[in-house]
Design a protein around this nucleic acid. Structure first.
Length: 267
DNA sequence: AGAATTACCTGAGCGC
DNA sequence: TGCGCTCAGGTAATTC
């Protein structure tokens, strides 16, 4: 599923192809996503020139000067850049045609994604206004994490998955970052020390930044710009040996999400 | 306010 | 072969 690094790599790949290009035509085939795709989207976007593509958490923001096209890929969504003539298949819900003959196609089997039109400052929109700091910015560090986490009673894993605390840390990277930092996902947030919060913030940046770097360096695979493989240390490896100590990784559930960790390496 | 739970959705994998 | 079940999970909305 697209996590922050996949979203960022998508942005980096689309930007050189599409900035400065004009939206010619928008085709909405399926508007019934998690939130309805606004009817007037075509009217708003067509004829506009794309100035840039920004990202906030896992939200992509297409700067159209008069407003912003917001896209979230949900769990199963991806964006493809294709020649305009490629016929749509199942789950190809939306196409944006550009004046260079390219078409940006939104594909999302589970329809957890979001496509909206925003006016005004996008960061003030309710969906974005209360998102925490960008994990890959200098604004995010152990002190920031500590200042919110020191008084919270939730498990540390749920704290770092809270988008109000830090943007865009999903289940896979939460598991991986906690392993890297040597902290048990089950620890109550308030029991985590300053030193550990520092290690955790560092690990979050390492794990996300490393994936962005790896994803950016990969050749574009086929026609997709969304996915790249991930070699996880813990996620998806419950019951298998820990790569650090060899003990069996345990799999539990937290807030209905699967958690995998090493009881020996993560205290 | 913070924590916990629910809803949204479909493909994959499973047992029978 | 196919039916029914469970699971996967980002995040907004809802409830406690």
């Amino acid at each position: 599923m697209p996590e922050l690094p996949e979203v960022e790599v998508t942005r980096l790949r689309l930007m050189p192809e599409l900035t400065g290009r004009r939206f010619e035509k928008v085709e909405i085939r399926v508007a019934k996503l998690r939130m309805p795709v606004p009817q007037e989207l075509g009217l708003m976007v067509e004829g506009r020139t794309l100035r840039a593509i920004e990202r906030r958490g896992k939200y992509l923001l297409f700067d159209c000067a008069t407003g912003w096209l917001l896209i979230h890929l949900g769990m199963t969504g991806y964006l493809q850049l294709l020649p305009a003539a490629v016929p749509p298949g199942k789950h190809d819900h939306l196409d944006c045609h550009f004046n260079n003959g390219k078409m940006l196609r939104f594909h999302d089997p589970r329809k957890f994604g979001t496509v909206l039109w925003l006016t005004g400052d996008p960061l003030l929109h309710p969906l974005l206004a209360s998102i925490g700091p960008e994990p890959l910015s200098e604004r995010f560090n152990g002190s920031v994490l500590h200042s919110v986490g020191k008084s919270r009673k939730v498990a540390i894993k749920q704290l770092i998955m809270d988008s109000q605390v830090v943007a865009g840390v999903g289940n896979i990277y939460a598991n991986e970052a906690l392993f890297m930092a040597g902290i048990s996902p089950e620890r109550v947030s308030a029991s985590v020390t300053v030193v550990e919060f520092n290690r955790l913030a560092e690990a979050i940046q390492q794990v996300l930044g490393g994936s962005v770097a790896r994803g950016s360096s990969l050749r574009v695979m086929e026609d997709s710009v969304a996915y790249f493989p991930l070699d996880n240390n813990v996620y998806g490896r419950g019951g298998e040996p820990c790569r650090r100590c060899g003990d069996m990784l345990v799999e539990t559930r937290q807030g209905n999400r699967s958690t995998v960790f090493c009881r020996s390496c993560q205290g």
